[in-house]
Amino acid sequence: MTRQKMKRKAEETQWRGGWLRWAHACPSPNCEARPALACIDLIVVHSISLPPGEYGGDAVAALFLNRLDWDAHPYYAQIRGLRVSSHFFITRAGKVWQFVDIHQRAWHAGVSSYRGRARCNDDSVGIELEGLEGQPFEAAQYATLQRLCDALRRVLPIRYVAGHEHIAPGRKADPGAAFDWMRLSGHLAGSGLMLPPLTQHTR
């Protein structure tokens, strides 16, 4: 077997269908089939923490699984009944959870538009970082995000990476100004992936 074939086989074995083998799988009911012929060419980076600014709990997973106790914190009254999901969630320690098969449509983008196309849920993969807009992210999260981007682009026609703030400007502001786009850009250099304009100058 040639070195190239060995590399391709190693990349393919990272996946079991649309599920990443090295992620903790926790299937969410908040998903559906993508439109026929959808070209999944966009990664959307988000940030989330529940309650906002509190880390390490299971509230984010509970939200994506429709199991959040709405009375457990005053903030939850603002999002009571919300049904959302993301394909992936990266904890502060760099652990990755997967909630939706990458070939399915997760509910992470909402009203959105990017690279000349609306309804970004149709043809994107959503990655949530445990964090809060304006607060720095951890080195372990960047390392996992980079590894995840690499794994995704091996099995999907990924061409773009953007933040929620870029696909829904004025409505969303995550991952926020503290996210180090230059760090991600440096890792992806030579990959052909396109980041939002000027993000390399945001830090």
Rank of each mutant, 00 (worst) to 15 (best):
C120R: 07
S124T: 02
G110Y: 09
G134N: 10
E130T: 03
R115L: 13
Q98T: 00
E130F: 07
Q98D: 03
A106M: 09
H103S: 10
G131M: 04
Y114E: 02
I127R: 03
G131L: 04
D101M: 04
W97R: 04
C120N: 03
I127C: 01
L129C: 03
I102Y: 10
A140F: 02
A109E: 01
I90Q: 01
V100L: 00
W97I: 06
A140L: 13
E128A: 13
A109I: 09
D123N: 10
T91A: 10
Q141P: 05
V100R: 10
Q135S: 15
V100Q: 00
A93C: 14
V96T: 15
W107V: 10
I90D: 04
C120H: 05
A140N: 12
V100T: 03
E128H: 13
K95D: 15
Y114W: 12
I127H: 09
K95Y: 15
G110H: 05
V111S: 01
R117L: 12
S113W: 08
C120A: 12
L129N: 02
R92A: 11
A118I: 15
A139G: 14
R92V: 09
R117S: 04
D122F: 01
R92G: 08
L132C: 14
Q104C: 12
V125P: 04
Y142C: 12
L129K: 01
V96A: 14
G116S: 14
H103L: 10
S124K: 05
D122P: 03
S113Y: 08
I102A: 00
I102D: 10
E133R: 12
G131F: 00
G110Q: 00
V111C: 13
G116Y: 06
I127T: 09
T91R: 06
V100S: 07
R117D: 09
V111M: 14
R119E: 03
G110D: 08
A106F: 01
V96H: 05
E128N: 13
W107A: 08
R119C: 03
P136F: 02
I127P: 11
V100G: 10
A118T: 15
V100M: 01
G126W: 07
L129I: 00
Y142A: 03
F99H: 08
A106P: 02
I127E: 01
Q98S: 11
S113T: 15
E130A: 07
H108V: 01
E138R: 14
F137M: 02
G134C: 13
W97P: 08
G116H: 07
V111A: 12
V125W: 00
I90M: 03
V96C: 12
E138Q: 14
R119N: 11
W97H: 03
W107N: 08
A106Y: 05
W97M: 11
A93S: 15
R92E: 06
R105C: 00
R119D: 09
E130W: 07
A93F: 12
I90H: 01
A140H: 13
R115H: 15
E128G: 06
A140I: 11
P136V: 06
G94E: 03
N121K: 02
E133K: 05
R92I: 11
S124M: 02
D122H: 00
Q104V: 08
